[in-house]
Simulated scan of single mutants.
Amino acid sequence: MQSLFTPTRIGAIAVSNRIAMAPLTRSRAGMDGVPSPLAAEYYRQRATAGLLIAEATNISRQARGYAYTPGLYSDAQVAAWKQVTDAVHAEGGKIVVQLWHVGRMSHTSLQAGGAAPVAPSAIQAGGQVFTEAGFEAPSMPRALQLEEIASLIDDYRQAARRAKDAGFDGVEVHAANGYLLEQFLRDSTNHRTDRYGGSIENRARLTLEAVNAVAGVWGADRVGLRLSPLSTAIGDTPLDSTPQATHEYLVRRLGERGLAYLHVVEGQMHGDNATSAIDLDALKQSFGGAYIANNGYDRERALAATASAQADMVAFGRAFIGNPDLVARLRDNKPLFDAPFAGYFGGGAEGYTQFTEAAAAA
């Protein structure tokens, strides 16, 4: 039952234990997408995780859907991220960055020149995005033109190159949680009639082309991908009509490419972890590589998942916010501090790299 705390390899990345820190948007960057000077300390504090998956990071200005989120499309952003990776590596940690394009989950105020967000099809998203004015409804998107897609794929490639310049150990392609790649994957949000719409093969095409571009920079064994086959939480995004067939096709093609890992949000993000609507074992077998489980895991479930080889790693999210020493706390079965929600997004050091004395003593 102690396999959770033993070393392994995730693709080409050697990790000291099976605990991953899930990507957590904390909205501490500048509006120029440059990570906060506090970010190096934030990630350094959590470097005992076997693998840190840095917060979702915009591949371009167009990719941004939330204020104060970081990017990987300028030299200043790379320089700030280099301070983060150096700090993590000085502690013996490993860190990859999640490459993000939000698609329709954006607002005109966050886009260059007040442009409309882009999506596979011009379908309004639900939910809210965080702008400088506060939480607002997403703006109506426009459908990407076919001739724009090559440039979009190049944005993934360029962000992957900048991630290498910034000193990361690899990258994770974000194809989950109702954002652009998942919008293309699901027939509920993709009504295209060209080579990127219609059949499962066509709807999976953009994700696979983005992965190919990123793997061409890093090598496939340092590239992971995140999926959320059952989540509808972001943007009120309806499920695909055939989630099992769609995702099995995609992960089989990813496995053929030799990706480092598949990272799956099991069940409903921020909610029910029931997975009866999809056969996760079939997805794992179709992929054939390392599997990172995510969504509502506690110590006992994580111990059982790694001991039974149901997962190669388990990703913890919110638990890492208030417990930088989460690995030690899990190992020693110590209680966890539940960080106040008020400090999750925006602000400074409080609730990010430090907590009140009372909170720290909890």
Rank of each mutant, 00 (worst) to 15 (best):
L230W: 02
I13G: 08
A166S: 14
P120W: 08
G126C: 02
V217C: 04
S121I: 00
V265W: 07
A56S: 12
A166C: 11
G178V: 00
L262Q: 05
Y42E: 08
E91I: 01
V118E: 07
D279W: 03
G134A: 05
V129L: 09
K284W: 02
N294P: 06
Y66W: 13
D338K: 14
V118I: 13
M1R: 14
N17E: 07
T131C: 10
N58F: 04
V97G: 11
G348L: 11
V327C: 07
S308Q: 14
S16T: 15
F287R: 09
K94W: 05
R301E: 10
V171E: 08
S231F: 07
N177T: 02
N58W: 00
S228A: 14
E300N: 12
L206P: 03
A14N: 14
L38D: 14
S241T: 15
A122V: 05
L185C: 02
K334M: 11
Y42V: 06
L144G: 08
L208A: 05
A14C: 00
E300C: 04
R253M: 12
R61P: 01
L51M: 13
F5Q: 09
P335H: 01
A63I: 04
A39D: 12
A122I: 01
T275C: 12
A245M: 03
V129P: 09
A358S: 13
T131H: 11
G114I: 09
Y179V: 01
S231A: 15
G343N: 13
I10G: 02
G30Q: 10
I149F: 11
V129D: 07
L185Y: 04
R28P: 10
R329E: 03
E248C: 08
R104C: 07
T6F: 09
S27A: 15
Y352N: 07
V15W: 00
T306P: 10
Q98P: 06
A307I: 05
A274Y: 00
A47R: 09
R161S: 12
A361R: 15
V265G: 03
N202E: 12
Q158P: 00
S16R: 15
L254N: 08
G348D: 15
V78D: 12
Q285A: 15
I59M: 11
G267F: 06
R157E: 13
E357H: 11
L181F: 02
I278G: 02
S151E: 13
R329P: 04
Q62M: 13
R18F: 06
T242S: 13
R9C: 04
Q285V: 13
G346E: 09
D32I: 07
L254P: 08
E147Y: 10
L239T: 02
A90L: 05
L146F: 07
Q145R: 15
D272Q: 10
L254E: 05
H263K: 03
